[in-house]
């Protein structure tokens, strides 16, 4: 069973619709107690960094989420569900993020050629050799809506290569992360038609696989 984190940050309908369409067993989880019997967590996120964090705190999710990821249990974050993994954000100075990954989330700087928010379909290039992200989706377009991004420089000085995907928007930035069983994307797979659904499918398959490991084919 996959839990969709419900911490009072808006509409979860499209994520639930996606699970229903893909026939992935999923339920809404609105308190940490509900996490116990889960095999994977889907964490959508929208709104401002500050609101997202304060709602996570109010629902008591902060420590259980950090523990979940530290125990290498399957996690998939979407949009703000990626950004709050970091230490903080220019969007809400002084507000602590989950701090699972290092560095600050920055704001795009508008220019004559760069509109902010980035709104629309952009390409994502997977960067890891052994990637959770399906090869068939490399360099495909996904739907983005955001004004803040994770700079590539956040990766510097960390032992683990957690940057799983890069997108170009004025600059190259980290649009997908993946380390162990923790994955997150800046774009909206639930709004990215076939390719987006394939990504949610990949996560559900991974959760399934971890639950019911198939023996390696001896041949």
């Amino acid at each position: 069973m996959i839990g969709v984190l419900d911490y009072g940050m808006g509409n979860l309908g499209s994520v639930l619709n996606t699970c229903r369409k893909l026939e992935i067993p999923a339920k809404l989880i609105s308190s940490p107690e509900g996490m116990e019997d889960l095999h994977g967590i889907l964490m959508p996120g929208q709104g401002a960094f500050r609101d997202c964090m304060s709602h996570l705190r109010d629902h008591g999710f902060v420590d259980p989420l950090c523990a979940w990821v530290a125990e290498n249990r399957p996690f998939f974050g979407i949009c703000m569900g990626l950004q709050v993994l970091f230490e903080d954000s220019e969007e809400s100075p002084g507000v602590d993020g989950l701090g699972i990954l290092p560095g600050t989330v920055r704001r795009f700087k508008p220019s004559d050629t760069l509109k902010v928010p980035q709104m629309g379909w952009n390409r994502v290039r997977w960067t890891q050799k052994q990637s959770f992200f399906p090869e068939a989706l490399h360099d495909r377009h996904f739907y983005f809506v955001h004004s803040y991004y994770v700079p590539i420089t956040n990766v510097e000085g960390t032992d683990v290569d957690w940057a799983g995907g890069i997108t170009s928007y004025g600059i190259d930035y980290v649009s997908a992360i993946s380390f162990g069983e923790c994955h997150a994307v800046q774009f909206h797979p639930e709004k990215s038609q076939r390719d987006g659904l394939a990504l949610i499918r990949a996560f559900a398959d991974r959760v399934n696989h971890l639950q019911n490991p198939q023996p390696e084919n001896p041949s």
Binding site: G13, N17, T18, K191, S192, Q193
Partner: peptide, 11 residues
Amino acid sequence: VKRVGEQVFMP
């Protein structure tokens, strides 16, 4: 919108 959203996955 609700009905379309159950079947179609785009903005």
